[in-house]
């Protein structure tokens, strides 16, 4: 589904990603962990197409298509979804208008008819239950005045509404209390199917108690330096990142 080869990216001439390699197959859940500043969020932004970053080398194939030359909206239409670490507040744009526009743009790309108003509302009702999001919130402007937890739940709500092929969740667990964390995890677990995949970017192992990954990768200094199963996350939780750093320095 996703194949990243030797990906290099920089911002203002500062290289953040220095050769990332990663393969994700349908039905898999991957966790990318790593200390602060290792390039986790940059990787998420680069994959989603943020223009702030410049890709200097490498290749990213998504379902066989090179997406690095694609506009962010086309990547989304191809089925890539980014759950933002800091979802943006957009006063004046209603959630309903935003989601319907988004859904219809994606449908149009696939050659489908726009969704009818009644079908859209039905879909909203159905998906709202999955993430336990308050109806009041969907009647407001996008993220405006939402609490931190509500914003994260709203990201997962958008994910299940748009039903992408690959979801990248960037620090979706940060700032969540245990109840919100469970809701978010349930949303992701219920959404999981053999034909879709998830990349969880997280600093802590906590989320991985609720969403069990097939693979855990450690990103350090812009490279994936270690890959293992879910037990790697527990090891990191117990021992911290220092031993990884040490291992890395020794290799270099």
């Amino acid at each position: 589904m996703l194949s990243i080869k030797n990906l290099h990216a920089k911002i203002d001439d500062k290289e953040i990603l220095r050769g990332v390699d990663l393969k994700v197959k349908p039905g898999e859940i991957h966790a990318i962990m790593g200390p602060n500043g290792s390039g986790k969020s940059t990787l998420a932004s680069v994959l989603a197409g943020h223009e702030m970053f410049e890709v200097s080398e490498g290749e990213v194939l998504f379902n066989g298509k090179d997406i690095l030359e694609m506009a962010p909206e086309d990547r989304a239409r191809e089925g890539l979804f980014l759950s933002f670490q800091y979802p943006v507040e957009i006063p004046g744009v209603s959630m309903v208008n935003f989601l319907r526009t988004s859904l219809n743009e994606i449908r149009k790309y696939k050659g489908q008819e726009p969704i009818s108003a009644s079908d859209f509302l039905k879909l909203m009702r159905e998906k709202k239950k999955l993430v336990d999001i308050d109806s009041k919130l969907t009647h407001r402007s996008v993220n405006e005045g939402f609490s931190g937890g509500e914003k994260k739940k709203n990201e997962i709500f958008q994910m299940v509404m748009l039903d992408p092929k690959l979801a990248i969740l960037d620090e979706t667990d940060s700032g969540l209390d245990i109840d919100a964390l469970r809701i978010v995890a349930n949303g992701v677990n219920n959404w999981k199917r053999p034909d879709n995949a998830t990349i969880l970017i997280t600093h802590y192992q906590r989320l991985l108690e609720y969403i069990v990954p097939d693979y855990v990768h450690v990103l350090y200094r812009g490279r994936i330096v270690k890959t293992g199963g879910k037990e790697l996350a527990q090891e990191l939780e117990a021992k911290g990142y220092d031993w990884i750093k040490k291992e890395f320095e020794e290799q270099v």
């Binding site: 506009a71 962010p72 909206e73 990547r75 989304a76 980014l82 943006v88 744009v93 988004s102 790309y109």
Partner: peptide, 13 residues
């Protein structure tokens, strides 16, 4: 940032 957010949801520029 708002522009990128909207575009990342499939909405064109």
């Amino acid at each position: 940032e708002a522009m990128f957010y909207l575009r990342s949801r499939g909405i064109n520029k």
